[in-house]
Design a protein around this nucleic acid. Sequence first.
DNA 1: CTATAACTTCTGAAGATACAGAAATAATGA
DNA 2: TCATTATTTCTGTATCTTCAGAAGTTATAG
Lengths: 174, 174
Amino acid sequence: MNLHPTAQKFIVHWGEMGTRWGINRSVAQIHALLYLSPEPLAADEIVETLAIARSNVSTGLRELQTWGLVRATQVLGDRRDRFSTATDVWELFRVILRERKRRELDPTLAVLRECVAEAKAAPAPALPHLDKRLGAMLEYMELADSWGERAARLEPAKLRRLAKLGDSIFKLAE
Amino acid sequence: MNLHPTAQKFIVHWGEMGTRWGINRSVAQIHALLYLSPEPLAADEIVETLAIARSNVSTGLRELQTWGLVRATQVLGDRRDRFSTATDVWELFRVILRERKRRELDPTLAVLRECVAEAKAAPAPALPHLDKRLGAMLEYMELADSWGERAARLEPAKLRRLAKLGDSIFKLAE
DNA sequence: CTATAACTTCTGAAGATACAGAAATAATGA
DNA sequence: TCATTATTTCTGTATCTTCAGAAGTTATAG
């Protein structure tokens, strides 16, 4: 599959951004390609288009599927799986938010809660500082958690409207 | 400097989370240590506490300084620099937001704008799809940019109040 | 049942990153 | 100026990550 230069530019950049966020470059590129593709793609088409090994496409697709970002679909009369991703950016946002929350924020909250409990329970004298700092961080993380929780629940259209509304409200606060 | 087990737990976890976000483990640990420390620390104290090489502490501190997350201060009668970080979580949030926006969102916006312009200007017939997808992504990123811009400007206390207010509003939208 | 196609997992090599210790530089005080 | 201390930069090694190709597995058609 030959790629329009503009699509290529986007895909390359997306891959680069991915690496900055702990996402494998190939994985991010596959996702970008699927995002731009008018119809679902077979693994081999991805191999050809991005010029990466079949095995990596397989692994990458699997990872994207565990993230919930990519779905496999079938076409009648063809054994091969076709892969696609959501094209609604707000849906994408929601899925990524949910997963990152689950993988990163939730464990952090757990650790913080333990830490705060320990700092409070300790009979030691020198902990008020620790307690205070950890408590502030916990409060912040809990608020972030609440935002994430709520945002992940909203359907894309509502999310978009709310984001635009929030932007206006923000404006007033300035 | 000996570290309370609770502090240790937090620092280790913070380092681990850092790696997931493209932040070097040592750098994240140094930051966590400074966040918990009641007073600014000298580089050697960090070396001793985290058991990492002096050179890495030097590099890590420099990186944190270029992020604007750490400041060097002086103590009368001591040649050594002391390092500290903001203890207000909302200030931290703001600084990190500003930097990530500058380093990641801004370049992405630039690329996206170019891509959209190219897709629109192209005389080719097969681009409406590309135009649509890229346009949707651009719109999303521009909204994110606006949020980032506004949030980075607000002072911490206002930011915190707004975040709490937003949380309540969010609740209503559910 | 066999051949083939689609897909996944394994393995080793290449590349990138992290990091300790050494060497070099800069700053301070005698 | 020289000696000492603080700090940064350099360099090689260890570790982690990425990735292609091979080997293995599963599914399908004939």
